[in-house]
């Protein structure tokens, strides 16, 4: 299976395993090597920050881990599921069940209320029940009073907290966040980051957060650095 037999055996608790991951974009005549052999393990219940300069391949990694794009080569397992052989349809199903996304730009549906934004994620995920502690999560996020509002009536921080609730409603194996505080001021950033850390501690939710901000990364249990499409231990 693995193309790298020399690798150390991976602990069974790891929920994300990445081996020698490559991603190459072909744009016109030029090939862009966005990922050039990424290796990464994330333990179950871990809060990991991936930090790196612009263009280092962070979002590309995020997209592959989230099943939004296929890898060019290499192996990726998410919660035991090997991503390389997945068809488009299977990747869609993986997004429903295994990952929750938090984006820099919140990406709430503007025509729906906060409550319905969460509900539609549940519908698309095909689940009829919510996590038993979801009420507690809403409490923690501090958005219970804001659920009837549409996104344009919410502040950036509130929108991002709704987006986190949406990402968690289907009990994903991993929560993927790409620059979740990129559009927020310091105060709101810290609030969101504290919530992520709290969530991780209370519910053992695995979180992989991408950022280029060291202060944000400091909220995580562990930080890895990315440069030129390769991960270096920080």
């Amino acid at each position: 299976m693995s193309s790298a037999p020399t690798m150390n055996p991976v602990p069974a608790t790891d929920i994300i395993r990445v081996r020698d991951l490559h991603k190459t974009f072909h744009t016109g005549d030029v090939d862009v090597y966005a990922l050039r052999g990424v290796d990464l393990n994330v333990g179950r219940g871990e809060f990991l920050a991936v930090i790196g300069p612009s263009g280092s391949g962070k979002s590309t990694l995020f997209h592959i881990l989230g099943g939004l794009a296929p890898p060019t080569s290499g192996e990726v397992w998410i919660d035991g599921l090997a991503l390389r052989q997945l068809t488009e349809t299977q990747r869609t199903e993986m997004r429903q069940k295994k990952v929750g996304f938090v984006f820099q730009k919140y990406n709430l549906l503007p025509t729906l209320t906060a409550r319905d934004n969460i509900a539609i994620a549940q519908t698309l995920g095909g689940s009829t029940t919510r996590p038993p502690d979801f009420d507690e999560i809403l409490q923690l996020l501090g958005i219970k009073q804001r659920l009837s509002h549409k996104p344009r009536a919410l502040s950036g921080g509130e929108q991002q907290r709704v987006a986190i609730a949406r990402a968690l409603v289907n009990q994903p194996a991993i929560l993927l966040a790409d620059e979740p505080t990129g559009n927020l001021d310091t105060e709101n950033s810290n609030a969101v980051l504290e919530i992520l850390r709290d969530l991780n501690k209370r519910t053992r939710q695995t979180i992989l957060m991408i950022t280029h901000n060291p202060e944000a990364a400091a909220f995580a249990d562990r930080i890895v650095a990315m440069r030129d499409g390769i991960i270096h231990a920080a």
Partner: peptide, 15 residues
């Protein structure tokens, strides 16, 4: 963008 969001959330093309 909204269609992208729906797809990221797991909406199939048929959906």
């Amino acid at each position: 963008r909204e269609i992208g969001i729906l797809k990221a959330l797991g909406a199939k093309p048929n959906t």
